[in-house]
Design a protein around this nucleic acid. Structure first.
Length: 577
RNA sequence: GGGGGGUUAGCUCAGUUGGUUAGAGCAGAGCGCUCAUAACGCUUUGGUCACAGGUUCGAGUCCUGUACCCCCUACCA
């Protein structure tokens, strides 16, 4: 048994996430967590909301509430949604938790002690009317390059030039429109990542099994131009983790908070701590996951994220961990994802384009989404969500191949043998052949899952499902029932065992459906450990009890017809403005 | 400008360290079955593997160049 630590990139608190966010980290992480648990490993699957920063403050203002209340509310919303999608986090924490405040400050202190922080003077635009410093993207003005009048402080959308907010002509606040802006000198703490460059490079280069995209992005940042740049880890904001030293203000850093990208990854650790506390574990327990000298050396740590997060997870966060020099656990494997697009374009929150988690779950059961998203996960390239693809995938894979298999079997059994599972004769070559075919594909499936090859795994799984239909077609219980009832009963018995097996191995992908199937064949909801499977593959198809009552299932999956798909396409096309 | 990824059947994609007739699902065609959500099974039609060169006994697979798409990143007047 191994110990597996799994973290999924932290969803930002500001609003409900869309399908692209879901498939980019949380969902595949959930599949992996469920798989690893099924294999009998000890799993800590940790996630949290990322709550600090300006967007959270502004969203709170829009909602006429305090930032604290807004975050509290949205954390609950996101947590509830994650449960509706059957995301099996062991703990869903918050980056604003007291433990994260504590840990973040400790990290800063430790980095400072190790000579890795320095103070740098910057100039930031301050808006008197808004009474706040304006991050670059909250300033608009005329582009010095192309004279576009609505250029943002970080980049001009018109000519794509990268800008400094101070370069803008006639700058004004995005928030209030005020032109009463003042360029003010302000000091910030910088993490001297450049000093850790060699260590980071050596570490990255030791990871020869990582996907090219991950290491190439990391190396690019490490080696290009002047190499890894030092980064500011503080901001002039109210909402966040106060920059303090031993409970007292850090001199020169009064009224500042840590940059959200500094404290957010630390929330992985803080949430593990909060999880341990909530489970009333020993106070040192969380350290067995995070500190090499407390046992974390044996932990296999896997992170899931979309590609935009890769630099932070390959460089910034490791720099924090390495720089602290306290034997912190570094990630062992990073699973990065590309983007999910929507009908050929981008998902857009502002234009309401695409499908968001709350809308999705109101339309179809979680497994519909899980199955489509996972079997089309943007692993090697961006992938595109279309309603046509969704419709065909759900109807074909779930309704026709899996759903219909369960349905035809259960209904046949109920009509010929009543609602109890019949015994019948012994298995013969027909069954053994099916078993050996399935065992072969299961091995491939297991391999793909181990390597976190999500799409590949779904196609193997689908192939295993269709073996059920192939078997029924070959054995023809509807003919046998006329001449040899014991034979027909055997086929039904084997069919039910297949159902049970399916419900176990499909659980990482479609957990809600698997619970239904499992309860139909009279099994408890406890998940079975796959480790059992390798002992004797044949015996796993003799576990359904004869005579056990079963409840015939309603159709597991309702098909999506053309009209419905078309309506949805129109409804979610978004606004054009 | 620099870097990375991509370009394989009508569509979505697999193709292991280069090795014989390039695979899957969907869609199309034909046949079979009738237990089942008009579901299922079997068979089958589709490919100058973006293009042009090169290395090799042999290249979808390695090298060079070109075209197009996506992403990251830097910037002159």
């Amino acid at each position: 048994m191994k110990r597996i630590l799994i973290t999924s990139a932290l969803p930002y608190i500001n609003g409900i996430k869309h399908l692209g966010n879901l498939v980019g980290s949380q969902l595949p992480a959930d599949v992996y967590a469920r798989f690893m648990r099924a294999k009998g490993h000890e799993v800590a699957f940790i996630c949290a909301t990322d709550e600090h920063g300006t967007p959270a403050e502004l969203a709170a203002i829009d909602n006429n509430t305090s930032t604290e209340e807004y975050c509290e509310k949205m954390w609950q919303v996101q947590k509830d949604l994650s449960e509706k999608f059957f995301l099996s986090f062991d703990f869903f924490g918050r980056s604003s938790s007291p433990s994260n405040h504590e840990l973040t400050k400790q990290f800063a202190l430790q980095l400072n002690k190790n000579g890795l922080l320095k103070r740098v003077e910057e100039k930031q635009l301050f808006s008197k009317e808004d009474n706040r410093f304006l991050p670059d993207r909250y300033v608009i003005g005329t582009c010095p390059e192309c004279s576009y009048e609505r250029a943002r402080g970080d980049q001009c959308e018109n000519c794509t030039r990268q800008l400094e907010a101070s370069e803008l002509i006639n700058p004004r606040s995005v928030l209030s429109g005020s032109k009463n802006l003042e360029l003010i000198k302000t000091d910030h703490l910088y993490l001297m990542q450049s000093k850790l460059k060699d260590k980071l490079l050596a570490w990255i280069e030791s990871k020869n099994n990582w996907p090219i995209i991950t290491t190439s992005i990391a190396k690019k940042w490490l080696l290009d131009g002047e190499g890894l740049q030092d980064r500011s880890i503080t901001r002039d904001l109210k909402w966040g983790i106060a920059v303090e030293k031993d409970g007292r203000p850090w001199e020169g850093m009064e009224n500042k908070v840590f940059y959200v990208w500094f404290d957010a990854p630390i929330a992985y650790i803080a949430s593990t701590l909060d999880w341990a506390t909530s489970k009333k574990q020993h106070p040192e327990y969380w350290k067995t996951w995070w500190l090499d000298d407390h046992g974390a050396k044996d932990v296999h740590y896997v992170q899931f994220m979309a590609k935009d997060n890769i630099p932070f997870h390959t460089l910034s966060f490791p720099a924090t961990l390495l720089g602290a020099k306290q034997s912190w656990k570094l990630v062992d494997y990073i699973k990065g994802f590309n983007w999910l697009t929507y009908e050929g374009g981008k998902f857009s929150t502002s234009q309401k384009r695409g499908v968001f988690m709350n809308q999705a779950i109101d339309l179809f059961p979680s497994d519909y989404w899980r199955w489509w998203l996972l079997s089309n996960a943007p692993e090697n390239a961006d992938s595109d969500f279309t309603w046509t693809s969704f419709q065909s995938c759900i109807n074909k894979d779930l309704a026709d191949v899996l759903g219909n298999f369960v349905s035809r079997l259960a209904k046949f059994a109920a009509s010929k043998f009543g609602e109890a599972i019949p015994k019948g004769s012994k298995y013969t070559n027909e069954e053994f052949e099916a078993i050996s075919e399935i065992e072969k594909i299961f091995k491939d499936y297991n391999d793909a899952m181990t390597k976190i090859e999500i799409r590949k795994a779904t196609s193997h799984l689908r192939k295993i499902w269709s073996k059920g239909n192939e078997y029924l077609q070959r054995s023809q219980p509807w003919m046998k029932i006329k001449t040899n009832e014991a034979e027909a009963a055997k086929i039904v018995r084997f069919g039910f065992n297949l159902m049970l097996f399916y419900s176990e191995i499909s659980e990482p992908f479609i957990p809600e459906t698997c619970l239904k199937i499992k309860s139909c064949v009279g099994k408890s909801k406890d998940s079975v450990e796959w480790s059992f499977f390798k002992d004797d593959f044949e015996t796993i198809f003799e576990r359904v009890k004869f005579g056990a009552k079963f409840k015939p299932l309603q159709n597991l999956f309702k098909k999506i017809d053309n009209k419905e798909a078309l309506d949805l396409e129109k409804r979610f096309a978004g606004t054009d403005d």
